[in-house]
Design a protein around this nucleic acid. Sequence first.
DNA 1: GGCCAACCTTGACCCAGATCAAGCGCGAAC
DNA 2: GTTCGCGCTTGATCTGGGTCAAGGTTGGCC
Lengths: 248, 248
Amino acid sequence: MLKQPILTAPHNCAECPIRHQAVCARCEPDELDALEEIKYYRSFEAGQTVVWSGDQMDFVGSVVSGIASLTQTMEDGRTQMVGLLLPSDFVGRPGRNGAAYDVVATTNLVMCCFRKKPFEQIMLETPHIAQRLLEMTLDELDAAREWMLVLGRKTAREKIASLLSIIARRDATLKPNDNPGTTVFDLPLTREAMADYLGLTLETVSRQMSALKRDGVIQLEGKRHVTVPDLIRLLEEAGDDTDGGVMA
Amino acid sequence: MLKQPILTAPHNCAECPIRHQAVCARCEPDELDALEEIKYYRSFEAGQTVVWSGDQMDFVGSVVSGIASLTQTMEDGRTQMVGLLLPSDFVGRPGRNGAAYDVVATTNLVMCCFRKKPFEQIMLETPHIAQRLLEMTLDELDAAREWMLVLGRKTAREKIASLLSIIARRDATLKPNDNPGTTVFDLPLTREAMADYLGLTLETVSRQMSALKRDGVIQLEGKRHVTVPDLIRLLEEAGDDTDGGVMA
DNA sequence: GGCCAACCTTGACCCAGATCAAGCGCGAAC
DNA sequence: GTTCGCGCTTGATCTGGGTCAAGGTTGGCC
């Protein structure tokens, strides 16, 4: 199972609408005040680039709403999405200069940012923030490595099922689950973005989505609205061991 | 270019033969003494498993000599190597329970370990250790994501060239470089292990190695001893932008 | 020295997924 | 309402790398 960071009961970062789980989860009120000082919001339109690979990145922060993706590109234009940032996910590299990959707004996007320099200072003075970020980063590393298995060894159908599983899981943690087993969500990605994440072409994504629909693993209303009648079935299609899914 | 953690001028962890760059890089003598208390060595034979995925991992540590690999396996036996640990690389998940993947000794292996519980305690009292580990983990995350591009979008030939580039680079940092441009090293991996790392079959690895040899990109003496007459050429074959390699 | 077992190479064939190409559906602009 | 364009689907064909199979090489062990 993909070990996406799961939302723990989070602490609101003062009045911030998004819970900075990484940063604020264990902060005292005065620490939150310090963070409040260096906090600001940024909005992006779908398709806009937040930072280019290699550019200086003068902030760290969290996604408030919308979706951002981390993308790597080769000179000849081949691209691979290396991370998907959903609301509450953390972006940034405290202690590191420059972005390692493009950060792109996949949908309209609002981010809550902290200026990097003073944030690093606060981190020095507030050890548990570094601790929390370390835990978060280890989780991201796990997720990235799990995704390496998807990219390196899974078939196209398994790749699609894996992606749908992740989105279903992340979505389920945000919404009250009315009907356990069944999951309904809107795909926040175009077929092309899915292809970029899965190391496939958009045609293959489209074909496999049709196949999963034909075989009753998913239902589609329009192109984006997905119903998963049986999550276990979807996980089996993803080739993951099923226990993991049940446990998580 | 793959952003493998580069060895910075490291601080020896007391008499430890290996430089724990992650842990000890900025430690004061008394901090090193505390680490010394909870330090021990472990040896493994090639092929032995250090920890199984999911098992409790009661230590963190560094590779002293030999190579360990992080491996994920599906029920049907498909495996994907998700990390390669060379001497001085750090293993472990402070603040996290259980291993997320198998850790396997690819060659004979010596590790220098710290007991996890007391290590975490030291980390709480020594903020710069957490900071340093965070930086390290961010670098590993970068490397993992760079590898996702390799797995998702590169051809077999580019994959092989990418792997050889990494090993050449890591090796160059350990050995005095007599002849810049030319690099010589012993492949520490079997064809099968290379295949597991690259998401290929061992036959394809073998064919592409032969092809690179035929085309003069590499020379082979025996199966393992590799000479790279022109590193830039190899980097081009890897499909990386060449500047990165030169800059690094 | 001779045998055996890993490890590796090479060939022949096949298939999953890429590529090329045509057309559909639907919302936005006029 | 018509047109345009984007996102998506589907079909036909091609091909890189997988699969299956047959040796070759090398080094350890008796």
